[in-house]
């Protein structure tokens, strides 16, 4: 809750608001589960209800809604009324975009700030600086859901080559900093495979597979990288069996020694030293390869699922048993 500065003047004491009749929230109802409002909040929202009642759209409505929003940025009606007023009085939407910058950083987790910005940006049609601004916001909270989905909207909606162009480098940097940042993995999938009108070329699929495997090699128990690997394979309809040589060393109990350190197989990087093996996602992956091979494959998959259920991933015992049951029934 923001603390009001000492020289804050309530609307009831502002002469230029004397003509507005404030409307209390509850008329003749003693509400259950009420909120204890501060006097300033009650004052501002009483005047807001007064304005909504008369339907006034004017410059001063922007002052009023700003005060309400500063005290409660989730007040969607204040945002909505503000937006309608901006349009009605032909206010500068560029100024409004500037105004929401500070609010967006201060209230990252509020839906309304981001949505308001989206309406403004769509109307002004000038997204040139937006990605850079969003980068500064993500520096504060690198997994913020609203910021990421908004960034994805900006890219998809404006669909400008120069905006897409920098995204891979940006994601590379984020995953360099923290390869467990799932928001960055999702963004990588979004920019690589979900852009309208772009068929993903075979060499891009290959590049992404190598990228995911390199990251898995650094930290084999990182589910984000495994999910991405699976995502790329599913997207490109590549059988999981194509990755058997890669996966196998991750299902052993020890980090394998590289016999010939001069030769590095980029497509099948080995687990790094310090890896905790066997890695659960690798065992699961290998079992998935076997499962599609028919009855004999299922026979090979069952001991793997059992090892997950009994030893390596006991919290999901029921799930692994379910997988065995399903596979046996289908085979």
């Amino acid at each position: 809750m923001p603390v009001q500065s000492e020289d804050y003047v309530p609307f009831a004491q502002r002469p230029e608001w004397a003509d507005v009749v404030p409307v209390p929230q509850y008329d003749g109802v003693q509400p259950l589960a009420p909120i204890f409002y501060t006097p300033e909040y009650k004052d501002a929202t009483d005047y807001f209800r007064g304005i909504v009642k008369t339907g006034e759209m004017s410059e001063r409505v922007l002052v009023l809604t700003e005060e309400v929003i500063r005290m409660n940025p989730a007040h969607y009606s204040a945002w909505q009324y503000r937006y309608r007023t901006l349009l009605a009085i032909n206010a500068s939407l560029k100024d409004e975009l500037e105004f929401t910058k500070g609010l967006a950083i201060a209230h990252l987790k509020t839906y309304q700030v981001w949505h308001h910005r989206r309406l403004l940006l769509a109307a002004t049609n000038d997204p040139a600086d937006e990605l850079r601004f969003l980068e500064s916001v993500l520096n504060v909270d690198v997994k913020n859901y609203h910021t990421w989905s908004y960034r994805q909207w900006v890219l998809a909606h404006f669909d400008r080559e120069e905006m897409w162009a920098g995204e891979v480098d940006y994601v590379d940097r984020l995953l360099e900093e923290d390869l467990r940042n799932n928001s960055a993995w999702h963004h990588r999938f979004f920019i690589t495979f979900q852009r309208a009108g772009k068929d993903t070329r075979e060499d891009v699929v290959k590049r992404e597979l190598v990228f995911a495997k390199q990251k898995i090699a650094l930290a084999p128990n990182n589910m984000s990288a495994w999910n991405y690997l699976r995502g790329v394979l599913d997207y490109s309809h590549t059988p999981y069996a194509s990755q058997e040589d890669f996966v196998r060393p991750y299902t052993g109990t020890q980090v394998p020694l590289s016999f010939d350190s001069d030769v590095i197989d980029v497509e099948n990087p080995l687990p790094s030293e310090g890896s905790r093996l066997p890695a659960v996602p690798a065992i699961e992956f290998l079992a998935d390869i076997y499962e599609v091979e028919g009855k004999e494959g299922v026979d090979e998959a069952i001991p793997l699922w059992k090892s997950l259920a009994e030893e390596h991933d006991t919290i999901r015992k029921k799930y692994w048993e379910y997988r065995i049951h399903e596979a046996v029934t289908a085979a």
Binding site: M1, I35, Y41, P73
Partner: peptide
């Protein structure tokens, strides 16, 4: 307490979620 006495002022952030 929440139902009968009400919510403290920090719940102003949920005024639009009564």
């Amino acid at each position: 307490r929440n139902l009968v006495q009400g919510f403290p002022a920090r719940y102003i952030s949920q005024d639009a979620s009564q």
